[in-house]
Simulated assay, not measured.
Amino acid sequence: MDPTKARAWLKEIEKAFTLVKVEADQKTYFAGYFLKGEANYWWESKKALEGDGVITCDRFTELFLEKYFPCYMKNQIEIKYLELKQGNMSVTKYATKFIELARFVPKQVDTDEKRAKRFQQGLKPWIRG
């Protein structure tokens, strides 16, 4: 269970849906089709538990993220983001790590000001100055 891979998979599926103009009521069927291995077994059992009604794409996304990006993982990533310091990293490597973690904490970086302030806080003091 790698939350970054799970989020990346969802992003790729959403891009594919946009590209081929998949109708909203078909998205869940297509997303389910592209699940492989354990994820496919999980989805088959989850569909049975959800009942006979239509499972919307939003509901699919919610269920998928509950399974592959649960709250405790979100909390761990948020802590990593908040504790991120440049340390021995180059500024470029620090920036890359910052961007990687920031995409998982959208409320922390929802303005340029918040993003810049947090980025500066993690820099080495002599660079920050």
Rank of each mutant, 00 (worst) to 15 (best):
N75S: 11
L65I: 00
E14G: 04
V20A: 03
V91N: 07
R118C: 11
R103Y: 07
E12D: 12
L63W: 14
F69S: 07
V22C: 03
T96R: 08
V20I: 06
N40F: 11
P106W: 01
Q108W: 10
V54L: 08
D112C: 08
V91T: 00
S45P: 08
E66T: 02
E38L: 09
A95K: 13
K15V: 03
K93S: 09
K5F: 07
Q76H: 12
D25N: 15
E78K: 14
R115E: 09
T4L: 14
I79H: 08
V109E: 09
G87K: 10
F60H: 05
E66A: 05
D52E: 15
T28G: 06
I55S: 06
Y81T: 02
Y33E: 14
N40C: 08
E38D: 04
E23N: 04
L35G: 00
K36C: 13
A39Y: 09
I55T: 06
L49E: 15
D52A: 13
Y94S: 00
S45Q: 13
G53W: 10
A95T: 10
V22E: 11
K80Q: 12
I77N: 00
G51A: 03
A16E: 15
V54I: 08
V54Y: 15
K85N: 12
E23I: 02
T61K: 15
Q86P: 15
R128D: 10
R7I: 05
F34K: 08
C57R: 03
D52L: 11
L82G: 04
A24D: 15
E12K: 14
E44L: 05
P70Y: 03
Q108G: 06
A102D: 05
K124Y: 07
I13Y: 07
I79M: 04
A8F: 09
D2P: 12
L63E: 14
Q86S: 01
P125M: 07
R118N: 09
L65E: 15
Y29A: 01
Q76M: 12
F64D: 00
R103W: 06
V105I: 07
K124F: 09
V20D: 05
K47A: 02
R128H: 08
A95W: 06
F30L: 11
C57P: 05
T92L: 08
T96N: 09
I55Q: 06
C57E: 08
T96K: 06
I55V: 06
R115C: 08
E62D: 05
K11H: 01
K85E: 14
